[in-house]
């Protein structure tokens, strides 16, 4: 009997010791796109966080909430007791993306400043090289040029202020949204607006599968104040304010107009 009690106390002691080793950490998450704007799918790459040359966290591409495709915890140590190779609040941490053993170049900010326990940081990365410095990778811009039928011929002609296919979305918006910058017709557009018998308004749009959407409303366009508008995905369903995920097929959205004149817009990230 004494042996059992002793064994139990050893187990409990081990448990306490284990609980005591839990360290404060912060969460880093985001979307990693390849040099053509495609969100990386599982098995494509690994992501590491580095403090100097010391790797402090690593993960692989996996679907995450809110459309992210990576997420990891970075331990943050107390600066009074931290070793030189441990992350402390205020330290600059760099993210690196590897495909196999090869570190991939990234565009834009790939570092963040470590914060305290429970902090969350969103870092979105684009792989590739950006020669003209417009935030868009050369691979994607070259592909758009090749598909432009001669309309554009160099990287500076594709970018944030340009709209090659003339569909109302700039090249940059098309890159981040995931639509074709060289094809009109697949832009984010509300269509088939219909006032229904139950007082609701419906519209249809063709989503990018997996993208996050929400509807905003404003009573005026002269001094617009956009707020998130409740929606339903069914004609008589409960209206809820929030985001929804795009499916593979065209989607119909239902809203309840609040006043005689309201303005609505559909947004995506």
């Amino acid at each position: 009997m004494k042996t059992r009690v002793a064994f139990l106390s050893v187990l409990l002691g081990a448990g306490l010791a284990s609980a005591g080793t839990l360290r404060p950490s912060m969460i880093v998450y985001g979307v990693i796109r390849d040099s053509y704007g495609i969100r990386l799918s599982p098995d494509s790459a690994s992501i590491s966080a580095f403090l100097g040359t010391n790797e402090v966290a690593r993960t692989t591409i996996r679907p995450q909430p809110n459309g992210a495709n990576y997420r990891f915890d970075v331990n943050v140590s107390d600066p009074r007791t931290a070793a030189p190779n441990e992350v402390t609040p205020g330290a600059t941490v760099a993210l690196r993306v590897k495909m196999g053993t090869v570190v991939q170049p990234t565009i834009g900010t790939h570092t963040f400043v470590a914060q305290g326990n429970g902090a969350t940081v969103n870092i979105n990365l684009i792989l590739g090289v950006d020669t003209d410095g417009d935030g868009l990778p050369d691979d994607w811009e070259s592909m758009v040029i090749a598909n432009s039928g001669g309309a554009v011929s160099n990287l500076t002609q594709v970018g944030p202020g340009q709209d090659l296919d003339g569909d109302g979305m700039t090249d940059s918006q098309e890159f981040f949204y995931g639509s074709f910058a060289f094809l009109p017709g697949d832009e984010l557009r509300m269509s088939a607006l219909t006032l229904l018998g139950n007082g609701r308004l419906s519209f249809t749009f063709t989503p990018i599968e997996g993208a996050i959407y929400w509807v905003e409303t404003s009573p005026s366009l002269t001094a617009p104040v956009w707020t998130i508008n409740p929606i339903s995905l069914t004609e008589f369903g409960e209206l809820r304010a929030g985001e929804f995920r795009g499916g593979a097929l065209p989607m119909t959205i239902y809203i309840a107009p609040a006043g005689p004149t309201d303005f609505y817009r559909l947004r995506s990230k």
Binding site: I38, R39, L40, S41, D43, A45
Partner: peptide
């Protein structure tokens, strides 16, 4: 990784 590239 090839299958992931193909899927995308």
């Amino acid at each position: 990784f090839v299958q992931a590239a193909y899927k995308d």
